[in-house]
């Protein structure tokens, strides 16, 4: 009975090493391993610039936040980036409380995040 989370991928026009990932649902301890595997597969396939759209991500806990930090770190190590857009105020509060706002690249909207890609 793990929490429902769905990742929907979209290619980004003109950026062959980038992917847009739409997170839908709740990201918590019951599904982090699945999400971790999926995103790491993207890294392994050469997509080192990832933009995560959190518009439909309702909930993140500390475990979920942990893998977001991991994605950010991994992307940077590969010369890319992991950007997040459309974070709702509840999720943002959690990120802020934990002190991760300076460690994650968070944008108000998707266009800003995409424009910031190298």
């Amino acid at each position: 009975m793990e929490s429902q989370i769905e990742l929907v991928y979209e290619d980004m026009h003109g950026k062959s090493n980038a992917k847009l990932i739409r997170f839908i649902g709740d990201l918590d301890a019951t599904n982090v391993e699945t999400v971790l595997e999926k995103v790491c597969n993207l890294f392994n396939d050469g997509f080192i610039n990832l933009v995560a759209d959190f518009k439909k991500l309702r909930y993140v806990n500390s475990t979920g936040l942990g893998i977001l930090l991991h994605f950010s770190k991994s992307a940077k190590e590969k010369g890319g980036s992991f950007k997040i857009a459309n974070v709702n105020e509840n999720v943002y509060e959690i990120i802020e409380i934990i002190g991760a706002t300076s460690l994650l690249e968070i944008y108000d909207d998707l266009d800003e995040a995409v424009a910031a890609l190298k």
């Binding site: 500390s62 936040l65 942990g66 930090l69 934990i98 002190g99 460690l103």
Partner: peptide, 16 residues
């Protein structure tokens, strides 16, 4: 530290 897995959950509970 923000990067320490165990600490994050506890820090969150304390702050909330």
């Amino acid at each position: 530290g923000v990067n320490e897995k165990r600490g994050r959950g506890l820090a969150l509970i304390k702050m909330l």
